[in-house]
């Protein structure tokens, strides 16, 4: 009996501690960001242009003042149109205007660590996202498309800052830089590498 009371006290203590730590803002948050991505390596050789068509969104749950876990998704569209050129091919020489595109849709689990207390005016943090991405490869030869769709492992380390709109505000401005890597091989692409800049909002739900 005494043992049970002890356990209840321990749980109560934990609960109180959590309630105290969660006092600043509720633990569950959503974030929505606009994304710009720069292709690197063989992805850049395939499609050289910086992508201004992207977004990222997720859910996060604060375990304590420092650690959070979450789930996120997003979208990025890489696109480059090349002037007419002759491409030697196993099927002959092909003269074409090539439009090279790749659409990436990630689904990742995240772990984040905040470097300061939730009451800080600026909260720097680091995140690692691990999951999979749908890679939709579409290379147009004139109006004829060469297509491939596959799921790939995707890992994305990220550093960023959250800036609350006033102390203890549930709404925060978010800016981060993320590196994306996937061991994706298809035609000209030997691995997927990109640096992504995101800005957006993060909102703690009650």
């Amino acid at each position: 009996m005494k043992k049970i009371i002890n356990w209840i006290l321990v749980f109560a203590g934990c609960f109180t501690a959590q309630a105290v730590s969660a006092q600043v803002r509720p633990p569950l948050s959503v974030d929505v960001n606009y994304s710009i991505a720069q292709p690197l390596g063989s992805l850049k050789d395939y499609s050289d242009k910086t992508s201004f068509r992207g977004w990222s969104a997720g859910l996060q749950y604060m375990l304590n003042n420092q650690w959070s876990v979450g789930l996120r998704s997003g979208y990025q569209d890489f696109y480059e149109k090349l002037p007419r050129a002759v491409y030697p091919d196993k099927q002959g020489d092909v003269s074409a205007v090539q439009t090279r595109t790749l659409q990436v849709i990630p689904i990742q689990a995240t772990v984040s660590y905040a470097f300061t207390k939730p009451e800080s005016a600026v909260i720097p943090y680091a995140t690692v996202g691990v999951g999979a991405a749908s890679m939709n490869y579409e290379k147009y030869w004139g109006e004829f498309v060469e297509k491939n769709n596959s799921w790939q492992f995707l890992v994305s380390p990220e550093i960023g800052i959250n800036v609350p709109f006033g102390k203890a505000s549930p709404l925060m401005f978010n800016a981060n830089v993320r590196y994306n890597y996937a061991p994706y091989k298809y035609n000209d692409i030997t691995s997927f590498n990109s640096v992504q800049g995101n800005i957006g909002l993060k909102f703690h739900l009650n």
């Binding site: 969104a57 979208y75 696109y79 003269s95 205007v97 439009t99």
Partner: peptide, 25 residues
Amino acid sequence: AMVSFSSCRKDPLKDMTNEESRIYI
């Protein structure tokens, strides 16, 4: 925001003249 961004894909076929659509093999 998500819906409008995902439909915001640049469509190669809408960015192409007849001349650009042709290939010569």
